[in-house]
């Protein structure tokens, strides 16, 4: 039927045009730019693979890549465990529970820059409330959480987990509420302890949600930018610079668009590969209700 063939496309047209113009188009353009030297203000010059070879030979880039890996490997489990913990905590029918759900969600909707400023102050060695508190407890050598290259990156992870745990809590909560109560009843009758209920009922039945959250958290962790920007600016001496931040700096401070574009394609490859691996691994640990 002719009508049936054309009509869907007409309805899809706005989305397709939007997607092409604002997503696919720029992606292709960025891909081409990654083979050029382009400072934005004058015409790009074709370089071939020079940007990519510069990346591979850049010591700073490898350090940034390592930082990104450390960030992801700590952020993803961190935020998932905290999110799940909060979700289990607020997944009951106590009076006023919505208040707590809202409370834990608050950091998610708070501006990252504001969070960065406040946490910078909390952690500041000369003025910070945390430093004062630890001094009060008798800790003599309170480390500089943001100024010491050993801790700066992990500090960012902690603050980012604090900010995003509420978001993952909501997702986990939705998943938890999808689990029919009958399973718990059955488990209880069989004499399962709360821990066993969590381990053998909740977690397996939550695995589709967990899978989704893992992918979201992974992508978030690889794209982290504004918190770094607000709190450490990648410092000290690049110790907390991650790939997205480094891309931003090269693109909008140094105006090295070609180099920055090549970096974002490396990021694209990493995200793509990890997501594929995730989907492949899915069949080994994700079970569905049906």
């Amino acid at each position: 039927m002719k009508y049936g063939r054309v009509a869907p496309w007409i309805f899809l047209l706005p989305t397709i045009v939007g997607l092409g113009l604002f997503r696919v188009g720029p992606i292709i353009a960025a891909f081409l730019v990654s083979f050029t030297r382009w400072n934005v203000i004058s015409a790009p010059r074709w370089l071939g693979l020079a940007n990519y070879s510069e990346l591979i030979n850049s010591e700073v880039f490898w350090r940034v890549l390592k930082n990104t890996a450390v960030f992801s490997l700590t952020y993803v489990p961190g935020v998932m465990i905290c999110g799940l913990f909060l979700a289990v905590l607020v997944n009951n029918k106590l009076r006023g529970i919505t208040f707590f759900r809202g409370l834990y969600y608050l950091p998610v909707i708070t501006s990252t820059v504001a969070i960065g400023v406040v946490w910078s102050w909390i952690l500041s060695p000369r003025f910070g409330i945390l430093t004062r508190f630890l001094h009060g407890l008798g800790v003599v050598n309170v480390p500089s959480f943001l100024g010491d290259s050993r801790y700066a990156l992990l500090t960012l992870v902690v603050v980012y987990v604090w900010k995003m745990a509420g978001y993952h809590m909501i997702l986990f909560l939705a998943g938890l509420q999808n689990i029919p109560a009958v399973y718990y009843e059955a488990a209880k009758i069989d004499g399962a302890t709360p821990w066993q209920q969590l381990r053998y009922v909740t977690l397996p039945l939550l695995s589709t949600t967990t899978f989704f959250i893992m992918i979201i958290a992974l992508i978030q962790s690889l794209q982290t930018f504004d918190l770094t920007f607000a709190m450490t600016e990648g410092g000290p001496n690049n110790a907390s610079a991650t790939l997205s931040f480094f891309t931003y700096v090269n693109a909008f401070v140094h105006f090295r668009m070609g180099y920055a574009a090549s970096m974002s394609f490396v990021l694209f490859l990493i995200v793509g590969t990890l997501t594929l691996v995730n989907f492949w691994a899915r069949k080994y640990w994700v079970s569905t209700l049906d």
């Binding site: 000369r126 003025f127 450490t232």
Partner: peptide, 10 residues
């Protein structure tokens, strides 16, 4: 003069 790590956060 303080080390750099001591003056961060402000």
């Amino acid at each position: 003069s303080p080390p750099y790590k001591e003056i961060v956060g402000i």
